[in-house]
Design a protein around this nucleic acid. Structure first.
Length: 922
RNA sequence: GGGCGGAUAGCUCAGUUGGAAGAGCGCUGCCCUUACAAGGCAGAGGUCACAGGUUCGAUCCCUGUUCCGCCUACCA
């Protein structure tokens, strides 16, 4: 037992790093497949390797650590597998910015040296978030730290790619894809963020070839694309236009004529003019329409979304127009085209129009639909089993409300564009024989700004890839051996999609994989449900033939940046590092847990954290209190021989244990935290510690040894119960309490024991609480200071309760601060008394000295009025219930009893107003 | 356009089989009572968004309306 002195306030800083180091040094975080216990495994959603901990991480990680510590203490073979993600575009962008500041570029460095540079950046900053995670107390198995681009995971990526290719589920094809003209790469559909903006709807008139006086007017939000039109579509059933189908119209500002086609899919007769221009190279719908009608694709923008001279030439744009717009970005070309159309009388109308634009999720640049050869995963065959897994309950999604979201998206899923034209990431394992593919490979070398040669490789559609696990030795067609590797890398989510099994050693059959797959729970935010969770399910089912996890717990989002709720410009961003520093890690963790209620976003206020900091301090002081008294002898006493407060608090603690376990089982972190808070503060500290003070403070008290025992026991159990939520504080306190073992984090988690349930004690406590409450209220009414002793009498309508009150005498006297007078309470008396009554319980306080009568009367009268209203309401309700006889009997009985007790109170109070004046000498 | 969620005390939010409206913070009053003023005790404060409906009874179930938020979508 320790008798160390504890400071008056809890100082998190002095304990946190110390305990973390101790835990780590003892290997408590490490899990081994050979360990006993049913496996419990969580793989962490890998944060960006170069990132730093924000409040969203703090929430996500706190919840996982709570589950992990809880399960570990329950004796499960518990693994929390940590790691980081290479975050392709995001990381590349960061390093590119650094280079730009140095006056260099990735091109001037060349691919190899650039990638090397990113690795350096990763080495320098990659530990930042790991250290911050440790600061948060995360009990990850750091021995197993993985990175999506480390050797093992890269091997898994190649393996998956090759197998999918061999199964015909990966293909290369020229499609219209979302293209970021700043990052110069393709993006998948979900990497595009849509935003609604106010745009214009332009109506443009296309003259008929054979009859230029007649025009066909189409509507578009992007007039600049009209230069690349290759048809105009109308609805085949539209009587206004269907006779025109097959005729030609002239494309304004060009020397071309294009056909009018009938297309019921593309055209909505009701919208605009009922005629639509088709630009297959620059619009997704038009691309598909173009395929239906075998239309040529005229690309007039280049990869930077600039008007391309070659494209303009191919589109036969009139020379003066071409000269005016060549090299301009889309937004600058638009007004020029608009003006030209207007000048030449082709612009029929311009009106305001709401439209949505897509932005790159990394750099917020407006994406352009762009025609280019890319790699795709054929997704439907993978999505089917992933839908079944959730529908059949092999994977539980919590809260259930998101299931439909998931299913809806999965059923409507489109092929996944997985190639990215960047350098940082897993390079696609495909090679091209230079001799066979000569005409498809364009290698262009130019002089860079620093005079360094910059080589740009373009692989055209039509090139024949050889997909393999390593560089092929020989071309199977021509036996050539000069290969060009596909320069593209994979979507960053491709590798993270393998996370649950690649991190456990796949494709090898490791003991880890055998033991921990499928993992138990995935804790994640909604924002990556499609990016990540869906892909893990599809790929896990495909390659492991089993779900990657049993439960998916989706927590609320803490919004920041553009998310209205929290933004740097508003200055309301909460930095978890700052919070931990100021209030302590445990306070932050407890706050996040208590706010993690399902289905609502978290709006974190700093005051809330402060409140839980105070809670930590409260616990700290309860421990300090115990140390004042724990040094005396303690007796192991049978439960039924312990005192009323002991048995009561043991019963309540047992109930709290039951609640916390049940709530954690159903991922209700908020309720678990709430139960702990309520119990610890308002039952343990406010009542239990107060109740046992007299016993403890009297060294000769016969019950003292048993009380000391209960105090030590309960506090030790509470520290274990609280540990997953507040690991540092509980360890620090637990170490000072009588205990066995080296650390609280490897002790058993408390479990409820029905034998400790004591309803009689809880009922007795309720009576005590009510009586003390009345006494205290009466004291305040009479303006007595808290310390001033009073004489009071307490009684109850029921005999058994009267007897109990008598037994509670010492507690009543202590907590009521006064003397419990026995004897009659009712009837006229020479003494002046203030009497308060509720539910059969009656308290009278002797009035001495000067009191603020007006105040007392005012309050009582007000209370009385409210009671009268309540009585009227209840009477009416009860009459109705008795009349219709449709309400359950117990409800009627309840109401009757309540009414009776209210009426009793009321009578007492009504008669006492006059009485009071007399009694109080008014 | 479709789907989902929210609207409860000044603020942030609980309230799951429909049966007397809750917490934290903030506020008011009294207390430096030997664990804790980051505290104790006692309070004030709500026609549970609006309008209907079902029911003996609705914050809760149904319908509609208004206002927010999110996801999703090719309406040119």
């Amino acid at each position: 037992m320790s008798t160390r002195q504890l400071d008056k306030t809890y100082d998190p800083k002095s304990v946190e790093s110390r305990w973390y180091q101790t835990w780590e040094a003892h290997g408590y975080f490490h899990a081994d497949p050979g360990d006993p216990g049913q496996p419990y495994c969580i793989v962490i959603p890998p944060p960006n390797v170069t990132g730093s901990l924000h409040v969203g991480h703090a929430l996500n990680h706190s919840l996982q650590d709570i589950l992990i510590r809880w399960r570990r203490m329950q004796g499960r073979n518990t693994l929390w597998l940590p790691g980081t993600d290479h975050a392709g575009i995001a990381t590349q962008n960061v390093v590119e910015k650094q280079l730009m500041a140095e006056g260099a570029s990735k091109e001037s460095l060349g691919r190899e040296r650039f990638v090397e540079r990113v690795w350096q950046w990763k080495a320098a900053s990659g530990n930042t978030i790991i250290n911050q995670q440790k600061q948060l107390g995360e009990s990850c198995d750091w021995d197993r730290l993985r990175f999506t681009m480390d050797e093992g995971l890269s091997r898994a990526v190649v393996e998956v790619f090759v197998r999918l290719y061999e199964d015909g589920l990966i293909y290369r094809g020229e499609r219209l894809i979302n293209w970021c003209p700043r990052c110069l790469t393709a993006l998948s559909d979900i990497e595009v963020e849509h935003e609604e903006i106010k745009g214009k709807l332009y109506s443009i008139s296309y003259p008929l070839e054979e009859d230029p006086q007649t025009v066909l007017t189409v509507a578009t939000t992007r007039p600049e694309t009209m230069l690349g039109d290759t048809a105009v579509a109308v609805h085949p059933d539209d009587p206004r236009y269907n006779s025109l189908i097959g005729r030609l119209v002239r494309v304004p500002l060009t020397r071309r004529s294009i056909p009018i086609v009938g297309d019921p899919i593309l055209v909505d007769r009701e919208f605009g003019t009922g005629a639509v221009k088709i630009t297959p190279a620059h619009d997704f719908n038009d691309f598909e329409a173009g395929e239906r009608h075998n239309l040529p694709r005229l690309a007039i923008f280049d990869h930077q979304a600039l008007l391309d001279p070659a494209g303009l030439k191919a589109a036969e744009v009139e020379d003066d127009i071409a000269a005016a717009v060549t090299g301009l970005p889309v937004v600058k070309a638009r007004p020029k085209i608009e003006q030209a159309l207007r000048d030449r009388g082709f612009l029929a109308k311009v009106e305001d129009h709401k439209m949505s634009i897509g932005k790159c999720y990394r750099c917020k640049t407006i994406v352009e639909p762009y025609l280019s050869p890319q790699w795709f995963v054929k997704i439907k065959p993978l999505a089917g089993p992933a839908i079944d897994a959730v529908e059949q309950g092999h994977i539980r999604i919590i809260p259930e409300g998101w299931i439909n979201n998931y299913l809806g998206w999965m059923r409507d899923i489109k092929d996944w564009c997985i190639s990215r034209q960047i350098w940082w990431g897993h390079q696609i394992p495909a090679w091209y024989c230079r001799s066979c593919n000569r005409r498809f490979i364009h290698e262009e070398t130019t002089q860079g700004p620093a005079g360094t040669p910059i080589t740009r490789v373009t692989l055209l559609q039509g090139a024949t890839p050889i997909v393999a696990r390593s560089t092929p030795a020989q071309c199977p067609s021509c036996a050539g051996s000069d290969f060009l590797r596909d320069p593209d890398v994979l979507d960053t989510w491709f590798s993270s999609g393998l996370w649950p099994f690649s991190t456990l050693g796949w494709p090898d059959r490791t003991p880890e994989l055998e033991t921990y797959y499928p993992t138990s729970t995935l804790v994640t935010g909604l924002d990556i449900l499609f990016f990540w969770v869906a892909r893990m399910i599809m790929l896990g089912l495909k390659f492991m033939d089993d779900v990657p996890f049993r439960d998916v717990y989706i927590h609320a989002l803490v919004r920041d940046a553009e998310g209205q709720k929290m933004s740097k410009s508003k200055g309301n961003v909460i930095d978890p590092l700052h919070v931990m520093d100021q209030y302590g890690t445990d306070a932050l963790r407890f706050t996040l847990a208590s706010m993690a209620s399902p289905g609502r976003d978290i709006k974190l206020a700093e005051e809330r954290i402060e409140g839980y900091r105070n809670f930590a301090n409260k616990i700290w002081n309860a421990a300090r209190f115990s140390h004042l008294y724990l040094d005396g002898p303690r007796h192991q006493t049978a439960l039924e021989e312990r005192s009323f407060p002991d048995r009561w608090i043991i019963s309540r603690l047992n109930r709290t244990i039951e609640t916390v376990n049940a709530e954690l089982e159903s991922y209700r972190f908020d309720r678990a935290a709430g139960a702990l808070y309520q119990f610890m503060w308002h039952e343990y500290c406010d009542w239990y510690l107060e109740l046992i003070k007299p016993t403890l403070q009297d060294p000769s008290h016969p019950e003292a040894p048993a009380a000391r025992q209960t105090l030590a026991e309960t506090l030790e159990i509470i520290m274990r119960l609280l540990h997953p939520f507040m690991p540092f504080l509980t360890e620090e306190i637990w170490q000072t309490l009588p205990h066995e073992g080296d650390s609280v984090m490897v002790q058993s988690y408390p479990s409820a024991d029905p034998a400790k349930h004591a309803p009689a004690m809880e009922q007795r406590f309720a009576l005590l609480e009510q009586a003390v409450g009345l006494i205290r209220t009466a004291r305040v009414l009479l303006n007595y200071t808290p310390g001033q002793p009073v004489d009071f009498a307490v009684t109850h309508d029921e005999m058994t309760r009267r007897r109990q009150l008598e037994e509670l005498r010492p507690h009543l006297e202590r907590l009521g601060r006064g003397r419990f007078e026995t004897g009659s309470l009712s009837g006229p008396s020479a003494d002046k008394r203030l009497r308060l009554v509720t539910e059969g319980l009656s308290v009278a306080i002797r009035v001495t000295g000067d009191v603020d009568l007006q105040k007392a009367l005012g309050r009582i009268v007000k209370q009385q009025e409210e009671q009268e209203k309540e009585i009227v309401r209840l009477e009416g309700k009860l009459r109705n219930q008795e009349f219709t006889a449709k309400a359950p009997l117990e409800v009627i009985a309840d109401h009757r009893q309540r009414l009776a007790s209210l009426q009793g109170d009321q009578t007492m109070l009504a008669s006492s107003e006059e009485q009071l004046r007399v009694m109080l000498g008014a």
